[in-house]
Amino acid sequence: MELEFLGTNAGVPSLQRNVTSMALRMFEERRTFWLFDCGEATQHQILRSSLKLSKLEKIFVTHLHGDHIFGLPGLLSSRAYQGGTTKLTMYGPPGLKQFIDVSLTLSQSRIEYELEVVEHTGGTVFEDQEFTVESLLLDHRVDSYGYRITEKDKAGSLDLKRMSEYGLKPGPVYGKLKRGESIDLGDGRMLKPEDVLGSPKKGRVVTILGDTRPCDNVLTLARDADLLVHEATFMDDLKESAYNYHHCTSVQAAEAALRAGAKELILTHFSSRYKDMEHLQPLLEEARTVFPNTLLAEELVLFPVQRHT
């Protein structure tokens, strides 16, 4: 898993940064990527990346402010022209479906692939054999949600030496053991998966927040996360402005990461008053005084999701 930021600005785009969007790349895990928010010009940012809209599987929307959703109609319309034929599912707060329906209907856009819009008010919004996605309400001017993406634990690697000792060769039997099934060796013995499998691989947890003030649900979503993506609209000397606009400072984001026991923090959603990466360095420095393992989101740069044990 890798995160690729397609927009890191708050409110409006600037010459240096686009508005909010990020891709969770899962090409090794499921050969797709998921998108979190879709501000204006997100599809242009995707064209500048190695991402292909044909591989987009899901979109998770945190809230309905324009800097998080104005890129959706164009991206959805373009997807079919870029080879997107598979089903696309969107998740977000109530009102998302109306926004999509009205935008596509009035523009007479034709969507030739299956598009499903799932509105939610928190809880478990998606689960399959590989991942669970949970959501909770945050503290913002409109209903804004954070998402906790949990990769399920995977079976350990097969001990090939032990397999050889049992006279087993690569083939379907390997798959059965990896799936947790016992094997009849044909001599009255049963080979159990735990006899030849290493320790399970702990699944990773990624927490991606929408716009928010500090609140308890931030800590719940970020508890022991391998990676927390947290808004940091202002430096801490503008804490009062952050509160008034229902946002956070870089120090407040770092405090949340520390209290939640997160392993790594990436700051994003920066006010346009901070013009470029050089002007963002003070935000990073003050956050690191609280939580040293902090990074600044940078657009079109890949951030691997590390597996912490």
Rank of each mutant, 00 (worst) to 15 (best):
D159C: 01
S135G: 09
L158C: 03
R141V: 03
T124K: 15
V133R: 11
G146I: 09
E130G: 07
L158R: 02
R179A: 15
P170A: 04
D139K: 13
R162C: 01
E127D: 09
H140A: 15
D139Q: 12
E151M: 13
Y166G: 03
L158S: 03
Y145G: 04
G167N: 06
G146N: 09
G156A: 06
R141M: 05
R148Y: 13
S135N: 08
Y174I: 02
K178I: 15
L158P: 03
S157Q: 11
G171H: 08
L177R: 06
S164Q: 06
K152S: 05
K161A: 00
V142R: 02
H140S: 15
V173C: 03
L177K: 04
T124Q: 14
L168M: 09
E151N: 10
L137H: 12
M163Q: 02
I149W: 14
S157I: 06
S157F: 11
M163K: 02
Q129V: 05
V133K: 11
K161F: 00
Y145D: 04
L168Q: 02
T150F: 12
R148L: 12
G175N: 12
D139F: 08
P170V: 09
G156V: 08
S164W: 00
K154G: 05
Y174Q: 08
A155I: 02
R162P: 01
Q129Y: 05
D143H: 13
R179Q: 14
M163C: 09
D153K: 09
E134N: 15
E151R: 13
R148H: 13
E127C: 05
K152I: 06
D159R: 00
K169W: 01
R162G: 00
G175K: 12
V125I: 15
K152W: 08
P172L: 09
D159K: 00
S135T: 13
L160A: 05
G156L: 05
E165A: 07
